[in-house]
């Protein structure tokens, strides 16, 4: 389907990569829905993936009592909902992350406040 119009209808997409200083990455923490939604972050493509764990996520999720209990070696990542194994030493770009990709992490054994997935 496409938009039914009287005249030719062709307008630029607002959120193409060139319009941002850095590509966007969406990140969500499964089973911790106290954080109402996943987050959207502009991250330089040469950022090492490991910097998420050490520098990015603590500022976002650190207030949750489960955050300090995460065993990062056991964390399961998903990209677009599919299991995915990033290399923490390589950059976001080298791990194949592109503008507006969505990744999520699961922390086995941690089920949120009082087991409520919050």
């Amino acid at each position: 389907m496409s938009t039914v119009t009287l005249k030719p209808y062709d307008f630029p997409a607002k959120d193409v990569r060139e319009n941002f200083p850095a590509p966007l990455l969406y990140i969500g923490w499964d089973d911790h829905l106290m954080f109402a939604s996943p987050y959207c972050l502009p991250l330089p493509p040469d950022t090492p993936f490991g910097a998420l764990e050490s520098a990015v996520l603590p500022g976002i999720y650190g207030e949750h009592p489960d955050f300090g209990k995460i065993d990062w070696s056991a964390v399961q990542w998903l990209k677009s909902g599919q299991p995915w194994k990033p290399d923490p030493a390589r950059s976001l770009a080298d791990n194949g992350l592109r503008h507006k990709d969505v990744i999520r992490f699961r922390t086995p054994g941690l089920t949120g406040l009082k087991g409520s997935h919050s």
């Binding site: 389907m1 496409s2 938009t3 209808y9 062709d10 307008f11 630029p12 997409a13 607002k14 959120d15 319009n19 941002f20 200083p21 966007l24 959207c40 502009p42």
Partner: peptide, 21 residues
């Protein structure tokens, strides 16, 4: 979106607009 992608690619999404400055 899939019915009319050429319309919604123009969405003025506040978060993206903030990041675009």
């Amino acid at each position: 979106f899939e019915q009319e992608p050429e319309k919604y690619v123009q969405s003025w999404l506040p978060v993206h607009q903030i990041y675009q400055g």
